[in-house]
Every structure is written in structure tokens, then in C-alpha cells.
Amino acid sequence: MSGADLPLWAAVLIAALVVIGSTLTLIGALGLLSLRSFYDRLHAPALGASWGTGAVILASMALFSLQGGTLQLHEIIIGVFVMVTTPVATMILGRAALTRDVADGLIAAPGSEPGSETGGDQSPPA
């Protein structure tokens, strides 16, 4: 177990960051399950990929830096990587869903009426 020799403020800070990050990721996963249409659900994992990852990365950097006595920043690569790549995957997935839904006649032209709600759940299984 780690963290016995840390000052109290550092422990509280790291604990808060870890709790915030994991809670955001959990809420994102909850949204993945509970939101109604696919296009709504598309937004949910972004919670875990943005500040969910960011907070955990910050906490990890702080813990290992304070423990080792030297600055340890290599976690930031994971942070930048996830923050850049998850939107790319989401974007292509959104386009794929739109193309598939239009092709199957589930929604009209791509967003022809701004503000129109589209339901992915009434769709037949693919």
C-alpha cells in the first residue's frame, strides 16, 4: 500500500481528484445505459474521456511525483492520447450511425429539421 508518508493536504487533494474522476466515469457509463436515443448516448462516454481521465491522470502524477521525490509526468501522454483519440472515434461512430439510420429510413435527411429528436431505440435490431 502506498501513501503513508504523504502530507495530509496532498492525500486529500489526490483522494478528491480520484473520486471526482471515477465518479464522472461512472456517471458516463450510467448515461450510456439510461439515455434514450443513440445520439444522446453518444455524449455519455465523453465524460469519462475528458475530465474522468484528466482527474485520474492528475492524481496519479501527483501521487507518484510526491512519493518518488522527482517529477513524474509520463501519465500525461495517456491523458493527451485519450482526450484526442476518443473524440475521433466518437465522431466517426456518429457519422456511421447517421449514415446507417438514413439508409434504413429511420430518420429523414441528416438533420434536415434542426432541433428534431431522433429515436434510435425504436429501430429494428441490426
Partner: peptide, 14 residues
């Protein structure tokens, strides 16, 4: 649960 393939891919990524 999926429903459609894009849901499954999104869930896998998450």
C-alpha cells in the same frame, strides 16, 4: 443489450 451495432461499438469504447 445493444439494439444496434453502433451502440455496441460505443459501449466497447467506453
Amino acid at each position: 443489450r445493444g439494439k444496434r451495432a453502433q451502440d455496441r461499438v460505443l459501449a466497447l469504447d467506453a
